[in-house]
Design a protein around this nucleic acid. Sequence first.
DNA 1: TAATATAGGACTACTGTAGTCGTATTTATG
DNA 2: CATAAATACGACTACAGTAGTCCTATATTA
Lengths: 134, 134
Amino acid sequence: MFQLSKKVEYGLIVLRHMAMKPRGQVFTAKELANEYEIPYELLAKVLQKLAKSGIVVSMQGVKGGYALGQKPEAIIVSDIIRVIEKERPMLAGCYVDGPLSCSIFDICTIRKPLEKIQKNINSLFDKMTIQEIV
Amino acid sequence: MFQLSKKVEYGLIVLRHMAMKPRGQVFTAKELANEYEIPYELLAKVLQKLAKSGIVVSMQGVKGGYALGQKPEAIIVSDIIRVIEKERPMLAGCYVDGPLSCSIFDICTIRKPLEKIQKNINSLFDKMTIQEIV
DNA sequence: TAATATAGGACTACTGTAGTCGTATTTATG
DNA sequence: CATAAATACGACTACAGTAGTCCTATATTA
Ligand code: SF4
Ligand code: SF4
């Protein structure tokens, strides 16, 4: 309960790896997967999502691979999660899927109070960048 | 991803309900379940766990039920979650199940940095009491 | 043209969560 | 003392989401 998904963890690990090396260096999904013992196909998909959003840039073909698309201090953990998981970490299902997703939405008494915690959690993930985990 | 379980939500809802009424008042699982449209059997189990830990006190038999076991301002959200879910909300699986639970534990580079966020999340849940959501 | 890399959809296996059911025990009350 | 109303609790089922795999297409270099 409450854990980051493996995909997010894998994303953070490889982004950190890239951030440690000289700017612009290119890494293949294969070598990253080997280095951190991550299932290759799974990591490939994570990188593809990160590429679509511009967090990394991708180069196809022989000698292709991925490089950081932004400076490490500009890559926000919150954005990484949103790119990989579609949305930020949310305490309650209704925050993500709306009123219709919960049968007791209108009589729920904790929805609003929990928003206070939600807001604080948001700001935690918003404040942390890849630079901070290098 | 990252959501509180329904059991925890149900627990929070009924504890808040109890906290709003005069101290010592007794509620049956049935009436609480009806009031908030929560599956009775499920809520019953949640209340049983809360009772075992002393957050509520239970009385068996006819005219039995549950009453708050502590003052609302002494009931910490963090404790409620731990009682219902066995442990507090954790960002990473290895924080809960130890090194052996993750195959890349020794080469993981994000485990320690994430502890910073974990600590902050812990303190959020530690600081909130039932009194605050009444 | 061959080799190497990303792109991406489809699929499977597994795990954890939500919810249900059945039964035992306790206790107030007529 | 019998009955009804309540908690206690283990076993079970159904479902949804996650992790991981597989297959094929496309791009690029040499
Ligand atoms: S409405 Fe209340 S119970 Fe339903 S998902 Fe939102 S917070 Fe949870
Ligand atoms: S070791 Fe790293 S990857 Fe494994 S669970 Fe802990 S944080 Fe996640």
